[in-house]
Design a binder for these strands. Structure first.
Length: 971
DNA sequence: TAGAAAACGTA
DNA sequence: GTACGTTTTCTAG
């Protein structure tokens, strides 16, 4: 166990008593066996394991154990024979549940820990202190005040029934003393339920006051004579020994003998079939369904486990007496129930590969009664593959044409809502008969898709989310097969429907263009014949469900479910909301700029023609090459891969530096026409007529490293480097009464490098907040930071960037316009000064070669199958990419984590700010003018701590933030 | 008309 | 030297 890990300790014995009294009685349906406390326990464990991040605990466990009392006789009875002597027998209905709760723990694949002669509290105390020594954090799932003495900066408690975290401030608030004083406080007050005597007449309030006045128990007892109140003074003197005994009784042992060490508590993947076998035996139907869906297990294929219930006194679990630990769940050796996650994933893949698609079996739903039947089926299944069909690719404009449903493989339906008849018809464009009125269908859909007990599965579900939201429906629980595939296979190919379908299901789905045609004449979906639309759309949902059945268990088997659930799935709705908001763009500014750029470009154009001695298409590199290197006879630089002379800016700049005028002008012309065509002319066309804002589309699954990408329009490449380009940013403006807030990570990739490669000088420099490039230059060239020439720093900066990109002498030489041998010398010097970087690079390359992928610090994988290529160029390229991916990808993961948290943080602070854009290391918000300061504080806090608690970075993250009326000034 | 190539905007 | 998306030109069909 190490720093950054998080141990969860569940106080099993306390939980069962509390649940028994707090929860409504529940009996197993078939035989009336009382199982209410077991049900509560299972639900809590499931919630902790699956949704820990959504609760106030705010963290996800890496280690996990459930601790029980073993027997009622412990070492405390030797200190004080009356300890817990007044405990009465547990209720009859609770007795059989003691054994079951242990069975449940094992079914969850969790360690079930108890120790003879010790209470659960002592075992938890021991583990918590061990974890603290290891630098890890602990959360104790209990609200028992006896455990509050354990609370520190690294140990907190969590009351699962009230969803409340108990840290140092909460203890102080409740008892008026810090956690470490709880022992003294309990020694004074005693505890009637445990029969701990304490000092008569002293309750919690008095005890807290006394401890505040005197510091601790020993001092208090020594100086008891100073107390003014007669009775209190006398009692403290008379019962001093009793207080000391009480203190011994309430002090938890932190050196309990431990059989399983901390590493043995590492959280193992959920074993779906094993858990489902137990839940089925308990007849916990809704939890069974949820577990099945989350673990990708087909509940119907799993037999109920044979769970042995001991009746009467024989059932007395170890909670009560010397009894033996009950048998583990005996999962019957049914073929499926015994499958490991790996075997299940393999079995699913095998079954799916031979799947049969029968488009004749698909149904068009044309009346409400039939729709209700399909909805009932979805509810029974608890899962629903859903696909919206629309008349536009733009989810911010699309109207719903119909939707398809599938909850059982092979059984899918299409519900047409807004299909129009063909234009050849005399009354062309009319609604086709026999479609459910949209309002009726949407009402039913809303109830279904917003229901928390239904998991909605989509392929690229962000699109459906946006479309449905515009129709008043907010999809709540979702899974996305595209994102599952991305987590499993980023780097091995596009995560699109067709390739996934071919790869996993061995099936080529109906192509959209076969349905609608292509190009200008392409039909929108509402113009497509309903029979054909049904074959296409129902198949779409069928494919999605089957892919989900294959991919979900695969995520579990590969240990990637956490990456999917923590870094991918929660971002779907976050990004959807950002896209829906859009950003305000000032048409006038763009139009003015466009005119200006056009004028300047025209002027340059005539200069160019004068210099070239005739007109030609300046935008054609081919014609330009002929003029420059043919007609004018300038010395050609490099060639492109198709053998043409390169006319890249680099080549032209070099020629300009030699005093040639034409190349200089070409570069200027290109800059202006680029800005005009890509930005000032194109952006207004993206302004949505309804919202008057520009809505980009983010892709979650487009990059190998985990970065997002933005398109239509791409708002991640708005110019900033040149003064001319920057002016485009002034057109991105805040709405009335608002400001744009820009918050960006400073040097996040170099910080990640310092963390993963663990470079002492880099860590120190970041810790001290000094100029990292200057530090590098100083180390390499021996030049003091003070008064360093700009060029020396520039070279070091290029090297630092080069390192992140998987440096080569060739690339560095190009960048710095120096010889390759000189660049090689620089690199050699760099590695001598920072040997850890070379080690990191070598290790990463070796890892990638062996595994075929590399991982970010959060476990995201990027695949590089070609790293084993026999072609040295291909191999070298893949090696550089593999070196870069953990750095770029970890930074991408960090900002993803920030984005996932930030909405709630703003909300909780009562701030109205809205996140609009992400540009890899920068987030843009729109915030009311009066809240700018507080917004920046909340955003910065969330971004700087985004790696926590999963990873404790070895360098601090730093965020710069500013606000202004437009993006140029805010950045 | 679709797709590749060249160029260039961002982190 | 890493990671992207969009534009224009040019070519192949």
């Amino acid at each position: 166990m190490k720093k950054g890990d998080h141990l969860f300790l569940v106080d099993g014995s306390a939980y069962i008593f509390r649940a028994f009294h707090a929860l409504p009685p529940l009996t197993r349906k078939s035989d009336g066996l009382p199982v209410g406390a077991v049900a509560g326990f299972c639900n809590m464990l499931w919630k902790l394991l699956r949704e820990a991040r959504d609760t106030d605990v705010g963290v996800t466990p890496t280690h996990f154990a459930v601790i029980f009392d073993y027997s009622s006789k412990t070492f405390r009875n030797e200190l004080f024979s009356e300890y817990k002597a007044n405990r009465s027998e547990p209720p009859e209905d609770l007795i059989p549940q003691f054994g079951l709760i242990r069975d449940a723990t094992r079914a969850f694949n969790l360690p079930c820990i108890e120790s003879e002669g010790y209470e659960a509290d002592d075992i938890m105390a021991t583990y918590a202190r061990m974890a603290e020594v290891a630098g890890a954090d602990t959360t104790i799932i209990s609200s028992d005040k006896d455990l509050m003495q354990l609370v520190t900066d690294h140990v907190s408690m969590y009351d699962s029934m009230k969803d409340r975290q108990i840290g140092i401030p909460e203890v102080v608030e409740k008892f008026g003393v810090a956690p470490e004083k709880m022992i003294d406080l309990q020694a004074l007050t005693g505890d009637s339920t445990d029969n701990i005597p304490g000092v008569p007449g002293i309750g919690p309030k008095t005890a807290a006051q006394l401890l505040q006045d005197f510091g601790d128990l020993d001092t208090l007892l020594e100086r008891a004579a100073e107390i003014k109140q007669n009775k209190r003074r006398e009692n403290l003197i008379e019962f001093a020994d009793q207080a000391r005994l009480s203190r011994q009784l309430v002090t938890l042992k932190t050196d309990t003998p431990i059989e399983i060490d901390l590493d043995g508590l590492r959280l193992e993947p959920q074993d779906g079939p094993k858990l489902i076998a137990f839940l089925k035996a308990m007849e916990f139907n809704s939890l069974t369904r949820r577990v099945a869906e989350a673990t990708g297990t087909e509940a119907g294929e799993v037999d109920a486990a044979a769970v042995e219930i001991k009746a009467g006194s024989a059932a007395r679990g170890p909670d009560l007496d010397k009894g033996q630990a009950s048998d583990p769940v005996r999962v019957e050796a049914s073929s499926v129930a015994a499958l490991t996650p790996k075997a299940l994933a393999a079995k699913r893949a095998e079954a799916a590969a031979g799947a049969n698609f029968d488009s004749d079996a698909y149904v068009s739903v044309r009346d409400v009664e039939t729709l209700d039947q399909w909805i009932a089926d979805a509810r029974a299944a608890g899962v629903l593959a859903f696909s919206s069909q629309t008349n536009s690719l733009d989810p911010n404009q699309a109207e719903l044409t119909g939707f398809s449903l599938c909850s059982t493989a092979g059984k899918a339906a299409y519900v047409p809502l807004d299909h129009k008849s063909g234009s050849s018809d005399l009354l062309g464009g009319g609604l086709v008969e026999g479609q459910i009125p949209q309002g009726e269908a949407l009402g039913r859909l809303k109830a279904l898709l917003e229901d928390d007990s239904i998991l909605v599965i989509g392929q690229d579900v962000k699109y459906d989310w946006l479309v449905m939201r515009r129709h008043g429906v907010t999809i709540s629980r979702l899974d996305d097969t595209m994102l599952m595939s991305y987590v499993l296979d980023a780097g091995t190919g596009a995560q699109v429907r067709e390739s996934l379908c071919d790869r996993w299901l061995g099936h080529a789905p109906i192509a959209y263009k076969d349905l609608a045609g292509t190009g200008k004449k392409a039909l929108t979906f509402d113009m497509i014949d309903i029979a054909a639309a049904t074959r296409y759309a129902a198949e779409d949902a069928d494919i999605t469900l089957r892919l989900w059945q294959v991919l979900k268990p695969r995520l579990v088997a590969k240990g990637l479910i956490a990456v999917y659930e923590r870094l991918e799935r929660p971002l779907v709705s976050v990004l959807a909301r950002m896209e829906a908001r859009g950003i305000s763009v000032d048409r006038q500014i763009l139009s003015r700029l466009s005119g200006e750029f056009a004028q300047k470009a025209a002027a340059i154009e005539s200069e160019i023609f004068d210099l070239a001695g005739g007109s030609f298409n300046i935008g054609s590199p081919k014609q330009l090459g002929e003029i420059l290197f043919g007609r004018m006879g300038l010395p050609g630089g490099s060639k492109t891969k198709s053998g043409q002379w390169s006319t890249s800016a680099q080549v032209l700049e070099d020629l300009a530096a030699e005093g040639h005028e034409l190349p200089r002008r070409i570069v200027d012309w290109r800059q202006l026409t680029k800005l005009k065509s890509t930005y000032t002319d194109a952006l207004p066309g993206y302004i949505n007529p309804q919202t008057n804002r520009v809505h980009t589309s983010y892709s979650l699954a487009a990059t190998t490293t985990g970065r997002l990408s933005s398109s239509e329009p791409n708002l991640q490449n708005i110019p900033i480097r040149t003064a001319e380009g920057r002016r485009i940013r002034t057109a991105f403006i805040a709405g009335k009464g608002n400001k744009l807030v820009s918050a960006d990570y400073s040097q996040i990739e170099l910080r990640v490098l310092a963390h993963v490669a663990d470079i002492p000088q880099l860590r120190q420099a970041f810790a001290d907040g000094i100029d990292i490039h200057a530090m590098t230059a100083s180390e390499m060239f021996g030049v003091p930071v003070d008064g360093m020439p700009a060029d020396v720093r520039r070279r070091a900066k290029a090297i630092n960037f080069g390192i992140i990109y998987g440096i080569s002498a060739f690339g560095l030489a190009n960048q710095l316009a120096i010889s390759r041998s000189e660049a090689g010398e620089y690199i050699k010097t760099y590695f001598e000064r920072f040997p850890g970087i070379r080690d990191y690079m070598d290790e990463t390359k070796a890892y990638a070669r062996e595994k075929g992928y590399v991982e970010t610090i959060f476990g995201r994988r990027a695949h590089y199958p070609d790293i084993r290529s026999s072609n040295p160029q291909v191999r070298a390229f893949n090696e550089r990419a593999a070196i870069n991916a953990p750095i770029q990808g970890s930074a991408a993961d960090i900002i993803r984590r920030a984005m996932i948290r930030i909405e709630n943080r703003l909300d909780a602070s009562g701030l109205a700010a809205q996140m609009l854009l992400q540009v890899h290391d920068e987030l843009i918000f729109e915030a009311p003018e009066s809240e700018v300061g507080r917004t920046i504080a909340v955003v910065r806090e969330a971004m700087e701590n985004a790696a926590m608690p999963a990873i404790s970075m070895k360098v601090p993250l730093h965020v710069d933030a500013a606000a202004a009326d437009n993006w140029d000034e805010a950045h």
